[in-house]
Design a protein around this nucleic acid. Structure first.
Length: 506
RNA sequence: GGCGACGUACCCAAGUGGUUCAAGGGGCGGGAUUGCAAAUCCUGUAUUCACCGGUUCGAAUCCGGUCGUCGCCUCCA
């Protein structure tokens, strides 16, 4: 009995999640059409399902996660023609960029990342099955390459996922209806090749797959006929996922195609004052994930994504991103305290330490004890990362409260180690707070120094000079130097063990 | 025209019938701490959940209507 509840687009309600086989989950997510760089919107979709994957793994389940690359498509062909590049070489190039970017963002690699171009025989077989079963028909001459269409009227449940009725669709409103089709809603399973296009031999002559068939074929190929979770962006509900269902259910006698359908909401770009900005390639303002990762740590970007629920629309702004950098710093500052304390030799078990010290120590202990269950409760409820994150923030505050009692540090190792395990849990599931703080701050500092055109040496020289002035109690000179550092974006922190510094992130 | 989502404080945002349910983060005000700062902690910031009706002992949460924003209706994460 699973304790996860998830929102199933099919029923438009929260449902208890019960995999077909207990402890075994098969999930398929529609990936990207690879003809350009991955932007922040794509990344939201990948991120949403990355967290689903991670949480299922955290539960100890055996998960097979399949996310495809669409490497044969009209837009790829168009782009390749434009660049004078082979379409498959072009898509290969962008797949490599995508892998790099997603790895930097801290996404786990799916178990299988199938491509259309390597599944052509299986696609042909499914199209043939649909023709044989009377759900598809070919038009044109084999010599020129026939088109094969799916006949939507042959599938009684067409529209069940999207809630659309065939008669209600405004055929021809946006895209001219192809008069070779029997019904305006019919869609291409196989497209006859135009001269010069990438194509494969088939019973219908030279051609290539239509858009939707690939996901039906690749999910079935790698997960079997009826699998547990199918995900993708909300925009894919219709027609893509609707068509996938129609094809898959008609091509075999296995039902249902996928049992739970999950869709992530869209990210929209907004100005710092909240007014929407249209993000489109034609405006050239699609924000690439790799550009952002040159500026901010992955944890910060993950905070932006995960502080709202995956199904909600997400207004993205620079201001919000910068806020998230601050949040990430706060989390890692607390983690740093814990790491420092944990480095001491344990002086008794955590519960003993807490009982002896009482107050903020006991409160931290209690929160640490409660953390895994609270975190799990949030994640189990339709992957409520926002609530899971708020648990992490509350833990962070408890750590800081505790950390303010410096005299406790030496004997609290066991307690700190337990607390660190909570941060590690968050790191495993959300990808937030799980790194060593030193690694986090080094990366952040390097990034910001580079952005400000500075080096550590320059900063440290000024810091040393200020330290000398402070040692001489020359407060005027010390403050002067601090202002100078401040102008460079360097924030100084005077502590009992000396002065530390960090780069101001916003 | 059809289908669907959303509207919670200055901003982001969780919460979808009742035990502090108005979380959490940011901002802003006050305080502790600090040589002064930064960071951190404490504290104040929505008697109220777009608006109007209704159901109910009880609603931000359910129903109806109004206004507003957005998505889809064969390119889309």
């Amino acid at each position: 009995m699973s304790d996860i509840r998830l929102y199933n687009t099919l029923s438009r309600s929260l449902e208890p999640f019960e995999p077909t086989e207990p402890g075994r989950v098969r999930m398929y997510v529609c990936g990207m059409t690879v003809y350009d760089y991955c932007h922040i919107g794509h990344a939201r979709a990948m991120m949403s399902f990355d967290v689903v994957y991670r949480w299922l793994l955290e539960k100890g389940w055996d998960v097979t996660y399949v996310r495809n690359h669409t490497d044969v498509d009209d837009k790829i062909i168009a782009r390749a023609t434009e660049l004078g590049e082979d379409p498959l070489a072009l898509s290969q190039r962008f797949i490599e960029y995508l892998d790099t970017d997603l790895a930097r963002l801290g996404l786990r690699q799916p178990d299988v990342e199938p491509r259309v171009s390597t599944h052509i025989p299986q696609i042909i077989a499914m199209v043939q099955a649909l023709v044989d079963r009377g759900h598809a028909y070919a038009t044109g001459d084999v010599a020129d390459g026939q088109d094969v269409w799916f006949a939507v009227e042959s599938y009684a449940d067409y529209g069940a996922l999207s809630g659309k009725k065939l008669g209600d669709l405004r055929a021809g409103e946006r895209v001219a209806v192809d008069d070779r089709k029997r019904h305006p809603g019919d869609f291409a399973l196989w497209k006859g090749a135009k001269p010069g296009e990438v194509s494969w031999d088939s019973p219908w002559g030279k051609g290539r797959p239509g858009w939707h068939i690939e996901c039906s074929v690749m999910s079935t190929e790698h997960l079997g006929h009826s699998f547990d979770i199918h995900g993708g962006g909300i925009d894919l509900i219709f027609p893509h996922h609707e068509n996938e269902i129609a094809q898959s259910e008609c091509a075999s006698d296995h039902h249902p195609f996928a049992r739970y359908w999950m869709h992530n909401g869209h990210l929209t770009l907004v100005d710092d004052d909240g007014s929407p900005i249209k993000m489109s390639k034609s405006l050239g303002n699609a924000i690439r994930i790799r550009d952002l990762l040159d500026e901010v740590p992955a944890d910060a970007l993950r905070i932006v994504y995960l502080e709202s629920h995956y199904r909600s629309p997400l207004p993205f702004s620079r201001a919000r991103l910068m806020d998230a950098v601050g949040s990430a710093e706060r989390i890692y500052l607390a983690r740093e305290v814990l790491e420092t304390i944990a480095a001491h030799e344990p002086a008794g078990p955590a519960h003993q330490v807490a009982a002896d010290l009482g107050g903020d120590a006991q409160e931290l202990y209690d929160r640490v004890q409660a953390f895994p269950a609270a975190f799990a409760a949030a994640m189990n409820e339709d992957f409520n990362t926002s609530n899971a994150l708020s648990e992490l923030f509350e833990l962070t505050r408890a750590v800081n409260r505790f950390g303010n009692h410096k005299k406790w540090w030496k004997r609290s190792s066991a307690l700190a180690r337990d607390a660190l395990r909570c941060f590690d849990l968050s790191g495993r599931v959300l990808g937030i707070g799980g790194q060593d703080s030193e690694q986090f701050f080094n990366t952040l500092t390097d990034t910001l120094l580079k952005k400000g055109g500075l080096t550590r040496d320059v900063v440290e020289e000024l810091i040393d000079a200020r330290e000398a002035a402070r040692g001489a109690k020359d407060w005027g000179r010390a403050d002067e130097l601090r202002d100078e550092l401040d102008n460079l974006g360097v924030v100084v922190m005077d502590g009992a063990e000396g002065t530390r510094w960090r780069m101001r992130s916003a």
